[in-house]
């Protein structure tokens, strides 16, 4: 296992982490903790919850970096999914921990980058942008949580503090409304 440096790719760092190199985990943490924090803080006002979610994320990565290697997915998206799920599961105490499975259980790659998210890359220049802006905040938050954050409807409901059933209907309404606005 060659030594890692600032120049190592995320995949190399994760391989070194799986090999037990603390230095690699530190580099990965220093590379990603900043933007993860900025993004999580837009979803949760409690800074302690945000900081703890980031810490949890890297502790989980240390224990389970091998899982990443198997899947060859984008490391940043993978880290984000872990972090946002950790944060959601911490939102209303340990009783809701089951939402994200066992604490050592990292999300499958299949749930990370969605097709809708790729569409959103065109938000800046496409017609989707104005449509999203015209959506009511409660509908938009659901789109954001599911399409952009990669959360399940149940997790999105928890993040937004609404019942799961409400979340389901709102998400359906949001999709219909978006389609109307786009045509």
């Amino acid at each position: 296992m060659p030594p890692v440096s600032e120049q190592s790719s995320d995949a190399d760092l994760l391989r070194a982490i799986a090999d037990g190199q603390t230095a690699a985990l530190r580099l990965l943490h220093h590379r990603h903790a900043g933007w993860l924090r900025a993004r999580l803080r837009r979803r949760c006002a409690d800074v302690d919850v945000v900081d703890a979610a980031i810490q949890d994320t890297f502790v989980a990565v240390w224990g389970d970096a091998r899982r990443y290697e198997e899947r060859h997915a984008d490391a940043a998206a993978w880290l984000w999914t872990i972090a946002v799920r950790r944060m959601v599961s911490a939102l209303r105490g340990p009783a809701h921990r089951w939402l994200s499975g066992d604490s050592g259980d990292l999300p499958d790659i299949a749930t990370t980058p969605s097709a809708e998210e790729l569409v959103l890359l065109g938000v800046e220049h496409g017609a989707l942008g104005p449509a999203l802006d015209r959506l009511s905040p409660e509908l938009r938050h659901l789109i954001e949580a599911t399409a952009l954050d990669g959360l399940t409807v149940r997790e999105a409901a928890k993040l937004l503090g609404i019942p799961e059933g409400t979340a389901k209907t709102r998400l359906m309404r949001a999709r219909i409304r978006l389609r109307e606005l786009l045509t």
């Binding site: 590379r31 940043a76 938000v123």
Partner: peptide
């Protein structure tokens, strides 16, 4: 920022290492 621009920034950042690195820490 207005919502669609926020989403654009976030969607872009999850795919662009350069912009992630620009977030001040």
């Amino acid at each position: 920022l207005n919502p669609s621009r926020v989403m654009a920034v976030e969607a872009h950042m999850s795919a662009c290492a350069t912009c992630r690195g620009r977030v001040p820490v």
